[in-house]
Design a protein around this nucleic acid. Structure first.
Lengths: 186, 186
DNA sequence: CGCTTAAGTAAACAGCGGTATACATATCAT
DNA sequence: ATGATATGTATACCGCTGTTTACTTAAGCG
């Protein structure tokens, strides 16, 4: 037998992280309203009451789960002359789905509370930095068009899988996507 | 005073239609799970029990509401050489929101039952006819890309309004959209 | 008119949701 | 070791949801 695990059985930080991770997974799959607190905590192997203890409420847990995932920096680092190619490669990568904030955002559009939170976080953490990156001329519109494309693609590949977009895309379709993203810059 | 309304106070067809209309409106705004039967029937001015009588269940009501809205023919009639322009004009029109099935579909992605219904109806009533219209070479992929663009645009204009896409778009952004749709054909 | 039937209502049921309370136990400094 | 405290659990509460049941009333035909 291996040595006993030296870590204590009770670890607040670890438990909190487990809940957060389970919440991201569940919210990304079933949305805000259709995900229950009992379901999240069962996946994390803990008691439902711990959501209130560590996050205050289901709503606050959602906010924490989404903001931990939203980060515009991945996109801002791409080279401008090959921006479309880089973005498409990222979006089409055999993605660790649980690390992609888009499904969560797309699925959370229904409930008013979740919608308000999502709207605020999307704007602050993603759209505004991206708009600044695009520059002063129509930067906000370009950022919105970027989100539009990325969300649509993610919607029909991860959230709502369409057979036609499953697996590897044809070269032509891939080129169409690259061109659409790139022409936002040129 | 005007003459009394000759229509009877009780009219099954009219009541059923009122429920259906209220359901389309509510589902398009708050999604499947977050819309209650009581809420729908209150908007229609009738008793909640009538949903069971006229549609069987909330789930069946959702199916009826969505399928009454889904119709690929509006797109199939557009001229191919000005397809992008026609589509964008349609999507950007000061739309009677309640007649657009897209918000309903986008918001219903969460609940498993609603998702299954939406998936089936979208494929049968829209994607397959559109794929046939595009033709045998990558028709299905093209139809999926069309949905991707249209859904993304609708998402950030009607479901999840972004300030940058509000109202009239700039000529450049509009041209970008037209080009994206048109290049699916050329 | 009278009376059968369709149309609509009111109320309750059973289940589930998020959350708060009261309780148990592992951890760690003293 | 031992007690104080952080950590985790069990359970109950209350409000809401879709649906069913029993009942009421309008419509329309003979």
């Amino acid at each position: 037998m291996a040595d006993a695990d030296p870590r204590p059985q009770r670890d607040a930080a670890r438990t909190r992280a487990a809940i957060l991770h389970a919440a991201q997974q569940a919210f990304s799959t079933k949305g805000y309203t259709d995900t229950g607190v009992r379901e999240i905590t069962a996946a994390a192997g803990v008691n439902p009451a711990l959501v209130s203890r560590y996050f205050g409420s289901k709503e606050k847990l959602y906010e924490a789960a989404l903001s931990a995932l939203l980060d515009a920096r991945v996109v801002l680092g791409f080279p401008r002359d090959q921006f479309g190619e880089a973005v498409v490669r990222m979006l089409l990568a055999p993605a660790p789905q649980q690390r992609n904030p888009l499904p969560m955002m797309l699925l959370a559009s229904a409930d008013p509370t979740a919608r308000a939170i999502t709207d605020r976080l999307l704007t602050e953490l993603f759209l505004e930095p991206l708009a600044a990156w695009y520059g002063p001329v129509r930067g906000a519109e370009k950022a919105a068009c970027f989100s539009l494309l990325a969300s649509g693609l993610t919607l029909y590949r991860q959230v709502y899988p369409l057979a036609a977009l499953d697996g590897a895309l044809s070269d032509e379709t891939r080129a169409w996507l690259v061109q659409a993203f790139q022409s936002l810059i040129d």
